[in-house]
Write a protein that binds this DNA or RNA. Structure first.
Lengths: 120, 120
DNA sequence: CTTACATATGAACACCTATTCATATGTAAG
DNA sequence: CTTACATATGAATAGGTGTTCATATGTAAG
C-alpha cells in the first residue's frame, strides 16, 4: 500500500471499505431531492407523514416509500401519536451532519471555478 | 419566527428547492462507493488517475468516467503534470465538508441522543 | 518519424430506482 | 358494529446509472 503521506490537518484520507460503503449508502439516500427535502423538513422537529407530504407537495404514498428507506437506514425514526406518525432524525449525530451540509450550501459562494471542458 | 433550534444553531430547516437540488446532486455523486473512494483518495493531496485506479483496484477507464462527473460537478479539478493528470479537491469548502463526513463516520460509536423539541 | 504510456471517450448492457396507482393495514370516533 | 382518516405496502413502469470493452486523443522519449 504505497500511500502518500498525510499532508496537514486533514484526516488521513484512508477509510476502510466498509466505512466507505456505509458512508456512500447514506450519501445515496440523501442524493434524491425528495428524500433530502424530507430529511431537511425533520431538522425543525418531528413531522407527520401528512404534513411532510403537504409541505413538500408530494403524495403521501411517495413520502411513505421514502420514509421506509430512511427508516431502514436509521436516519429517521418513527413515533406514533394517535392516528398520525411523526418522524424525527434518528440521533444528534445525523442531525449535526445534515445541518452542517445545509449550512455549507447556504453560505455565499466561495471561489470562482477554474476553467473546464472545452467543446469544439 | 423560526422554529426552536434544539442543540446548536440549527438552520431553520427551510432550504430553497434550488439549494436542495444542488445539495442532492452533490450527495448523489458521493453516493457511489467507487466515486466516494476516489474523492476520499484526493483528501491526502492531488492524485494521478493511474494511482487512484491502482490504489482502489479499479480500471483506469472507470476511474476516468467517474472523474468526468466529479469534474463536471466542480468537486475535483484536474492539473496536468507531464503525461499524468492529477486531480484534487476543487476548493477548501468541499474538502471541509467531505473531511467532516469522514470524521463523523470514523468516530467509534454513535448512539441515539433523545431530545424533546416541539410537541403540539 | 515511431513507439510506449496515460487518460479520455463512446457505445452497449445489465442493473437499479423513483414514481404512480391500487389496495391493505391500523386507528380514532359516531 | 361502521365510517373516516392516516399511513403502509405491493406491483408495474419509465428513466437513470455504473460498469466493461473497444477506441481515440494526447504526451514524452528513442
Amino acid at each position: 500500500m504505497p500511500k502518500s503521506a498525510s499532508l496537514h490537518a486533514l484526516p488521513a484520507a484512508a477509510l476502510s471499505d466498509d466505512k466507505a460503503i456505509e458512508l456512500a449508502d447514506m450519501f445515496r439516500l440523501l442524493g434524491d431531492p425528495s428524500r433530502l427535502r424530507i430529511v431537511i423538513e425533520t431538522l425543525g422537529g418531528p413531522q407527520s407523514v401528512g404534513d411532510i407530504a403537504a409541505n413538500l407537495g408530494l403524495s403521501p404514498s411517495l413520502v411513505s416509500h421514502h420514509l421506509r428507506l430512511l427508516r431502514a437506514a436509521r436516519l429517521l425514526s418513527p413515533e406514533r401519536r394517535g392516528k398520525q406518525i411523526f418522524y424525527r432524525l434518528h440521533d444528534a449525530h445525523i442531525a449535526h451532519v445534515i445541518a452542517d451540509m445545509v449550512a455549507h450550501v447556504q453560505e455565499p459562494e466561495h471561489e470562482a471555478a477554474h476553467e473546464e471542458d472545452a467543446a469544439p
